[in-house]
């Protein structure tokens, strides 16, 4: 029997094909080469956030980061604000990555050091960060970024957006290799599968989780930089809704909400599915409401399907124990 994760990937590829077919049926404009570039424009920001969420969930606990979108808004404002004060843009971006990491570290301290359940801790920081983003700016966006900065998210290389090449794909590969090939990766899975057993066999569960919450903050900062380059302005609500969407993508991609199961490849497929659906419905000029409904049904349906498959596998294992 194939392992359930591979099955999951096959299922996701099928879903992606189905989504693309739906797009082709719904709109004559969908099956054009330009659609690919247009579609991929939306992928990186959501994609890296989904990866961050997948990592936080993988290490168990159960782990979740609801503050990821608010973190992204706040870092974007910080970068644009620093630039406005005369800091060179690249230095401001570097500082932004550090700020993102620090905001992530606040979550890490709450969840790992103080042992506050992650749902509550990151809910609290979600309020604090998104409130801060709104309050500091009074709700108005900060603009005035140089136009060369737009190249990152607006430029294309062989028809594919540059931030796909420079951020999304490299990050995906690095994280995939880290999870599947390195000791750190297997420790992350171990921590998510059985915290106690992992701890007793010498895995530094605490360090791993602490690091992943910080990493999630840094990745949120990356997303902020891409958004900044795309829109040439920092909006206080740039990351609104991203926290729930990133959870959706991680779960749709096969990450288990209690940890220990999941793959970056699944997350990448899930981002492509969600974006394809959104773009297809958009091109077909169908109300945005249906996009929401489709995402919701997809989310619940994929977890249900997962559970059903898992139960059948377990039943089979009981009948003929190897």
């Amino acid at each position: 029997m194939k392992d359930p994760l591979t099955q999951r990937l096959v299922f996701l590829v099928g879903l992606l094909v189905a989504a693309a077919l739906a797009g082709a049926v719904l709109s004559p404009h969908f099956l054009q080469a330009s659609t690919v570039g247009y579609l991929l424009q939306y992928v990186p920001v959501l994609g890296v956030l989904g990866m961050a969420q997948t990592l936080v969930m993988l290490s168990g606990g159960p782990g979740i980061d609801l503050s990821i979108g608010a973190n992204m808004s706040l870092v974007g404002l910080a970068i644009a604000g620093m630039f406005g004060l005369g800091v060179p843009l690249l230095a401001a971006c570097a500082a932004g990555l550090v700020i993102g990491g620090l905001l992530g570290a606040v979550n890490a301290v709450l969840v790992c050091t103080l042992r506050v359940p992650s749902l509550m801790a990151t809910l609290a920081t979600f309020f604090a960060y998104s409130g801060l983003a709104l309050a500091l700016t009074g709700g108005t966006p900060i603009g005035g970024l140089p136009s060369w900065f737009g190249t990152l998210a607006q430029g294309r290389f062989i028809g594919i957006p540059i931030h796909m090449w420079t951020v999304f794909v490299p990050l995906g590969i690095v994280l995939h290799v880290m999870l599947s090939q390195t000791r750190l990766g297997s420790h992350i899975y171990a921590a998510g599968n059985d915290e106690r057993a992992a701890f007793l066999s010498g895995v530094k569960v605490w360090h791993i989780r602490f690091g992943l919450y910080c990493l999630s903050g840094v990745i949120a900062a990356l997303a902020a930089i891409m958004t900044l380059s795309w829109f040439q302005a920092a909006r206080p609500d740039a990351g609104e809704g991203m926290e729930l969407l990133s959870v959706t993508i991680a779960v749709l991609g096969g990450a288990h909400i209690f940890g220990g199961i999941g793959r970056i490849s699944g997350t990448v497929l899930a981002v492509l599915i969600v974006t394809t659906l959104q773009v297809a419905l958009q091109l077909a000029n169908i109300s945005q409401a249906w996009q929401l409904a489709a995402i919701g049904v997809l989310l619940i349906g994929s977890v249900m399907a997962d559970n059903a498959v898992g139960e059948r596998l377990r039943a089979r294992a009981r009948r003929n124990p190897a």
């Binding site: 929401l292 919701g296 989310l299 559970n307």
Partner: peptide, 19 residues
């Protein structure tokens, strides 16, 4: 269906908002 409550209600929230 044994879907964790936060995931299930996240999904239904999208559906309800669509409605």
């Amino acid at each position: 269906s044994r879907v964790p409550p936060i995931v299930a209600t996240l999904g239904t929230m999208y559906v309800y908002l669509a409605v």
